[in-house]
Structure formats: structure tokens, C-alpha cells
Design a protein around this nucleic acid. Structure first.
Lengths: 172, 172
DNA sequence: CCTATTTGATATGGTGCATAACAATTATCG
DNA sequence: CGATAATTGTTATGCACCATATCAAATAGG
């Protein structure tokens, strides 16, 4: 996934600027974010990038991306569904879901089975290894990732944040 | 930017499922989101996609992407800076910033000028057209986009949301 | 002056996301 | 029933975004 050095690029990183010798204040080369700080979309994207970056790192022992984790979660909660159903509820287009499943299946985490009632569709099932990996990933997410997040914001604020984000996705 | 039908793909869209005749409840083909609903990262991404989609639509009359808008905002607030400075404060890598500037400059919104003191760097300045476009974009964002968002969440909640997102990006 | 660093730029590759098109299968309906 | 339409998984393809390596020109620093 090349999660390598995403952080370096995102870090605002006060750039080295040629300081005119008569620089009045000490810290004058900081760029003004201006009205950018008020833009909710900007804050959303920045926070999302950071959270995903931390997710990757937290769950690194099981080598799962956020998208892959969400697929495993959904397969576990909804066994016996086909690709179209899983993909669309996750907002993934069917063509793009194929490669994702290939990756998970090749790692032995899930399995495609032809449905006897409709031989077009593939019934998706988690394997034992898939369930084990998911369980381990859940623990990593809870303890390393979400715990630190709720600690940063406070439990109540964290819940309120989640509720607002869900509301935006649902009703905006 | 092909903002076309992103919505269609995201819409959960209860998929057509072959209903066993003896389906007990009426609404049984809804997929269980399960613990996905508790995942802050998932909610973040979904909300971010929706907000960006709405931004695109709201600001369509001036044909600016969120990234382009943020560049114009920063150029307006920090005149006389070079590409490296603007790019890094926005979290954009210098190589990728070149094409972005090409697009804006070819539309006559900003201008590159060789610095007399350092002939390597390009001083970036908004043109009059750029300032006018930015002003128009600001109004569109404020009235069509942010207004509806704060209306949905409530003024206080909206401010709290912004604060939390900024905190995540900064301190997480 | 010689070397190291910086700046903008190019080339390139990976990844996510969207559309069109296709074969196999199933549904629909005259 | 049989012709046509719709669905499922799949492939191919293109665009946007992001990251790295590399380069020439210019500057900085010893």
C-alpha cells in the first residue's frame, strides 16, 4: 500500500525561507492559513488523512487497509451475501471490488462460492483464517487506534463527533 | 474532475436480492453495517466524500476544486511566496504542485514571476481575475455550502466539529 | 572556486475511482 | 415456449491523486 512516508508530505513543515537580515519578529516565516482554517471540508480531509495513516500503522501487524478491514467486518456481519451486495453497501463499485476480493481471497481470508440458486453470483464467506485475522485486527483497532483517538478528544466528544459525521454522510 | 455520478455509487442502495418466499419481515434485505458504524475513520471518510461532492457542486459556477480553492485562498492571504512555500503548507508535494499551478495560470487566475533576489524561485501572485474569482467562490462556499452544513448541524455543533477535526489533524 | 543545497520541473509508478463492454446466467413477457 | 431484457462477475481503460527519483539552473557556504 506504500504507506511509507505519507506523513512527511502532510507535515506543514515550515519551509526554509530566505530571511531578510532585518526580520523584525523571530517567527515571521509562518504562512497564514487564513480562512482555510474555517473551511470544514479542509479540516475534514486533513483529519481523515491523519486518521487513516494512524489506522494503517496501528493495524500493521495484520496488514489490512481501512477498506479491507471494512470488507471483512461486513462479511462477518452479513454472511452469505454476494459481491454486488457487499460492494454497494460499502460504496465500492463492482468492477473495483473484484481486485479487492482477489487480494483477500489469495491471502486465504475469504472465499467465493458459486450460489446454487443463482449461478451468476458468488456467495462470499469468511474463512477461519479470515475470522481470526479480523478478530486480531479488531483488537488492534480498539486498543491502539480508537482508544488513543477517544483519549485525545474525550469520550463524550468522540461520540458526538462520530454522530455528526454519520449525520453529514446521511443527511447532507 | 468527473464529479458526475459519485453519489450513485455511494448511495447504499438496497440491492435487489432474491427474496425467499417465506421472508418473515418486510425489510430483511438491508445489510448490517455492524461495527462499521462505530469506526471513526469510516465515518470520517464518508463525510469527507459527501462534503467534497457538495463543495464541487456549490462552487460549480466558478469551476474550482477544493484543492484549487485552497490554493487561491492561501495565495490571497500570503502574497509574494514561492511554489515550495505554498505547496508544503497545503501538504502538496512540489512535483504535483506544478500541474496545479499550470492549470490556474492558464486560466489567468494567478501568475508566476521570477524573483529578482533568487532567480530559482517563482513568486506567486493572484491576478485581478484570480481575486475576482476567489471572491465569487468565497460567496458561493459561504452561502451555498457552509451555510447548509451549519444549518444541518447547528451553529455550535458545527464549530465544535471544526475544532475537533483541526485537533485531530494537529495533535493525533 | 568547488561543493552542497535549493527550486522548479519532468518522468514515472502506484492507487483509487469511474465508465464501457462482455459472457454467462436469469428474469420477463408476448 | 422463446425472444428479449436485466443481472452478475469480470476485463479493459482512463482520469485524478499521490509519492519518488532525477535533472538543470541558481544559490549558498566553505
Amino acid at each position: 500500500m506504500t504507506a511509507s512516508k505519507t506523513a512527511a508530505a502532510v507535515k506543514p513543515a515550515r519551509a526554509a525561507r530566505k530571511e531578510p537580515p532585518a526580520e523584525t519578529a523571530a517567527e515571521a516565516s509562518e504562512l497564514m492559513m487564513g480562512e482555510l482554517s474555517e473551511l470544514l471540508g479542509y479540516a475534514l480531509k486533513r483529519a481523515q488523512l491523519r486518521v487513516f495513516e494512524d489506522f494503517l500503522q496501528s493495524v500493521a501487524p495484520v496488514q489490512l487497509t481501512p477498506a479491507q478491514f471494512s470488507v471483512l467486518l461486513l462479511l462477518d456481519a452479513n454472511p452469505g451475501r454476494n459481491q454486488t451486495e457487499i460492494a454497494t453497501t460499502l460504496g465500492i463499485l463492482r468492477p473495483n471490488f473484484v481486485a479487492m476480493l482477489d487480494a483477500l481471497e489469495s491471502r486465504g481470508l475469504c472465499q467465493r462460492t458459486r450460489s446454487p440458486s443463482d449461478r451468476r453470483s458468488h456467495i462470499l464467506v469468511l474463512t477461519d483464517k479470515g475470522r481470526a485475522t479480523l478478530a486480531r485486527a479488531k483488537k488492534l483497532v480498539a486498543t491502539r487506534h480508537e482508544a488513543r483517538l477517544t483519549e485525545l478528544l474525550g469520550r463524550d466528544n468522540s461520540a458526538a463527533l462520530l454522530a455528526m459525521l454519520a449525520k453529514i454522510a446521511r443527511e447532507f
